[in-house]
Write a protein that binds this DNA or RNA. Structure first.
Length: 358
DNA sequence: CTAGGGTTAG
């Protein structure tokens, strides 16, 4: 067997995995083994990463066994792939457990492992654990890694510690697009809209940073929270004309939110009707939320109907519509809804907070 | 040729 064959095989497996076709990648590897091409650690890890992202725990364990049977030891890439797959699929407990197992197997976590763990802490809004991971990153010498630092900015922000996010951000000698985006989102999501917009402007001036679709999602979020309608519209144009970024659903959702919050419900609905992509639940949800705040029953019913189609299992949408009726004193409809929900044996989702109780 | 950070509504 030729080394070039293996590199080509690995590239093909990676291609499958990147397109969400881990199964195809696995079949290819099996076929190659019959042709006496022995997969190496890279091949196995690529497959593990694919099945971990697809949440296929059975295949992941099978791959660990298979690689051992073929005389290849799982390494830090193998374990980190599993951890990151679990974090991406919001299986945080399992991710932390897998991290423990990784350490028990005597493997050393890398900066990639740490950034995945920080992302897990952000998802849970668990700043106590986040600080531990931060300290651990310092100890093993990966704290200066740009991924780790961007993950720290995001983790502190999502846990509600904006000033600590800011400290990490401004300490960073080098930042990239994701770093800036994390900080703009941090400001926008905590009501520091002017700071978010200002930071976006700085990012645009700093030539070395490329703005991407998420930079615009972040700044549009700030615009909508601050009621900056004119700025939102001009940014939506700037994005397309100067940066050649095609607006995505999330940009439209921000615009609908922006118009809706300001009470311009028919303009918001007009945007939904003219947008070139099919509106998703965020877009309709933004409209429904605005209808609640402004007591528009007519549009609320339209939005609810679309939401019911898009996510029939989510009873929160019905609750919102019911709240619109209640707010506008339409008690007959409130009663109608309560009956409907009782019939469907639905219960209101219990509330949850992103910020851990102190 | 393998793992990592940032996503919109109530």
């Amino acid at each position: 067997m030729d080394e070039k064959d293996l590199v080509a095989l690995n590239a093909m497996v990676l291609g499958y995995v990147q397109h969400g076709l881990a199964e195809e990648g696995f079949i290819l590897v099996e076929q190659m083994q019959k042709l006496d091409i022995k997969p190496d650690v890279v091949t196995w890890n690529t497959l593990i990463s694919g099945f971990a992202q697809a949440c296929d725990e059975v295949m992941v364990s099978k791959l660990f066994e298979l690689m051992l049977m073929n005389g290849v030891e799982p390494d830090a890439f193998s374990w980190t792939s599993v951890i990151s797959g679990l974090v991406q699929n919001v299986q945080i407990e399992k991710a932390l457990d897998t991290f423990k197992q990784m350490l028990q197997h005597g493997l050393y976590p890398s900066s990639a492992t740490i950034s995945s763990l920080l992302s897990a802490c952000a998802t849970m809004a668990n700043v106590r654990l986040g600080r531990k991971v931060h300290g651990y990153a310092v100890v093993i010498g990966v704290e200066e890694d740009i991924y780790v630092r961007s993950a720290l900015v995001d983790m502190y922000a999502k846990c509600g510690f904006i000033s600590e996010a800011r400290v990490v951000f401004y300490k960073m000698p080098e930042k990239n697009t994701a770093t800036w985006n994390s900080m703009i989102f941090a400001y926008a999501n905590h009501g520091y809209c002017n700071e978010a917009i200002e930071l976006f402007n700085q990012m645009e001036k700093a030539e070395e940073n490329k703005l991407d679709h998420l930079s615009f999602t972040a700044v549009l979020t700030a615009c909508s929270h601050a009621g900056r309608i004119a700025l939102g519209h001009s940014l939506l144009l700037l994005m397309q004309e100067k940066y050649k970024i095609v607006p995505r659903l999330e940009h439209y959702a921000c615009m609908v939110d922006l118009l809706g919050r300001a009470g311009k419900l028919s303009e918001a609905y007009g945007m939904i009707k003219t947008m070139p992509v099919k509106p998703d639940l965020f877009v309709w949800g933004a409209l429904l939320g605005a209808c609640r705040n402004h007591g528009d029953i007519y549009l609320a019913e339209i939005a609810s109907r679309h939401l019911a189609e898009l996510e029939p299992q989510n009873n929160g949408n019905n609750m919102l519509l019911s709240n619109v009726y209640a707010d506008t004193q339409n008690w007959e409809n409130v009663a109608k809804f309560k009956k409907l929900m009782k019939r469907k044996k639905l219960r209101r989702f219990s509330g949850c907070s992103w910020v851990e109780a102190a």
